[in-house]
Design a binder for these strands. Structure first.
Lengths: 343, 343
DNA sequence: GACGATTCTCAAAGCGCTTTGGCAGATCGA
DNA sequence: TCGATCTGCCAAAGCGCTTTGAGAATCGTC
């Protein structure tokens, strides 16, 4: 059923039917009622491509999700971010287009999307330090919003981010307040902007407490359980092991716990762990009592907001750049305790 | 830069330029070379909507990913499945459209996709027992492929699935061979087809060994770490606790391990654990030596294959239904051992 | 009752592409 | 040399929608 058929059935012109359906004022309310009813009855829905062609709007947002070329890892936070964004899109009548892409191919994909015209804007994921994609998107004139920020990038752009620096500052201070002095940092890949900020927050808190960060206690890698386990096992085998770990994701924390238990130590008593928690739906930090002490911010909520912001930016291009800084909240769980007395 | 402008620049008609670019034979090779070169130089790419409108093909595949309405959980395997499918799509020049949807809304979404015409086909995720979506898609005539199967559904359809029944049969037999007699099953939600098959395989192996499955040892829920922990803690507190767990995902297994360790037992010695492993990129079962004994099948590979199959089904609708049954492979890790002698 | 204002509806153009049908000019066989 | 066949190109229609510009019909007003 297309517009032509529907209008013939109603004995009206395509124009009138189209206007009636799209809420234009110059159509009799009685006529509109008839049209809307007929459309509902025949399950008519305008063809998205034709509509897009006529209006010049794709009613779709693109997400380019990078795959770490070396490790072939898909960051698990995408599932939840996408779920959040998807909610906002379906409310606003937008579709979501996803391209999974090797890191180096991203700019080509943006260019393609622009010239193929199948999206009205894109969300940029996992921004790196001084990320070239931002300038690139500016250049080709495709509206976009960054999930995260890119330090060193001096062009204005819209973004939504968590205050990663403050989150890690608070987490580190919490451990320092418990008396910990040797704190290991298991960070995400430090070409990523969020990881840089987290490290800065961590180091800052240490220095404020008069402690010089020890490079031997700071590691950075893809945020997997395996990394957490390996790095923690190594750290615990040091002559002077850390008494606490500050880690960048629950998956890392799970690996750390495994290493702690393999060392016949008890988490929360012998060794403290604080983690960053994206509040992933399938990886909740305990059902009732949190397992890990954590700084938490829901990545799903971030997805919801990101989509809303981008949509409104597209709706009114004259708007200034939008940004939003979310604060992570600290919740105390069972994984932290005062520094144990030396035996 | 659109076709008209490009053809004017070249002093050719739109027809010729279009044919040259699309590889039609009735154009001089020399002319084609010129056209292709000019297109490359001006970074010309045909507008996707216009092309779709003209050809009637959207060059896009839809994925409807359901959110469990009760728990708001996004199944983490989607990230990897999508990554795999995305690879095949970009090779074939297809886009991927994703809708995140509350369970009950799915059929409306399929209907929308069909009438809006923004996809050429869809992948159906998480099929349930006797899933109504299959009949529905048949009815509206939208090509589709099911990731999994739907027992009780008597219509023919294309699918790709793991041999879940055999996987759990083998896993259970492995435990039985080690002497385990009380084996707990922590299964996925049993309205899901895969969970039903897994349970059948499990029960089958037990019965073959002359053991009647004990309902008190079989649990079914969303596959989270929390579920694994809770269910395992409860089971271990039974007067006659199980000596082994067979679980449906690594996340559950991680929860089980936590419960085991909280009970001051050692996994692999006191209690054995076998898990199903989707080979998720961010949740590898150990880097070198597998942590858990597991039956494994890569969901990413399944995504790749699913996309390929659907694309070829769309390319040639006269093809009979395609299907593909993948076998999971058993890898022995550190989480299993012979049943301990009663103290 | 005539006139302008208002309300409702329509025909047609246009979005950017593919594809049909056809037309010159070159090539070939007899 | 002439008609038949190919080759290489083109004009125009059509995909399904929105939107412009305009025309009928209705209304209120003097």
């Amino acid at each position: 059923m297309n517009l032509k058929q529907l209008s013939e059935k109603l004995g009206l012109s395509q124009t009138t039917v189209s206007r009636a359906l799209n809420g234009y004022p110059e159509v009799n309310e009685e006529t509109r009622r008839r049209v809307v009813e007929a459309a509902r009855q025949h399950d008519y829905r305008p063809n998205a491509r034709a509509k897009g062609l006529a209006t010049g709007r794709a009613m779709a947002i693109g997400h380019v999700i990078p795959i770490s070329a070396k490790f072939e890892i898909v960051n698990p936070i995408f599932a939840d971010f996408i779920a959040g964004a998807g909610e906002s899109y379906s409310k606003a009548g937008y579709d979501m287009l996803i391209s999974v892409v090797r890191n180096d191919d991203e700019e080509r994909v943006y260019r393609d999307m622009k010239s193929k015209g199948n999206v009205d804007g894109v969300i940029v994921h996992s921004p790196r330090l001084n990320d070239s994609r931002i300038g690139h998107l500016h250049e080709i004139g495709l509206p976009f919003l960054v999930h995260g920020r890119s330090s060193g990038c001096d062009i204005g752009y819209s973004w939504i981010d968590v205050n990663n620096r403050r989150a890690f500052e608070r987490a580190a201070r919490f451990l320092l307040d418990l008396g910990h002095r040797r704190i290991a940092l298991l960070n995400g890949p430090e070409m990523m902007d969020f990881a840089i900020r987290r490290r800065a927050g961590f180091e800052n808190a240490l220095r404020e407490a008069g402690i010089e960060p020890d490079p031997a206690l700071m590691h950075s890698a893809e945020m997997t359980e395996g990394f957490g386990h390996r790095a923690a096992a190594e750290a615990l085998a040091l002559p002077e092991p850390p008494t606490a770990f500050l880690v960048a994701s629950i998956l890392i924390a799970i690996g750390v716990r495994r290493a702690i238990e393999e060392s016949r130590l008890t988490m929360g008593r012998d060794i403290s762990v604080v983690t960053y928690d994206d509040d992933l739906s399938y990886l909740r930090n305990g059902d009732d009592i949190p397992i890990f002490t954590a700084v938490r911010s829901s990545v799903r909520e971030a997805g919801r907001l990101a989509a809303e912001m981008l949509i409104s930016a597209i709706a009114d291009p004259s708007l200034p750049h939008l940004d939003r800084l979310l604060e992570a909240e600290l919740t105390v769980g069972q994984s932290t305790g005062p520094v144990p007395v030396r035996s």
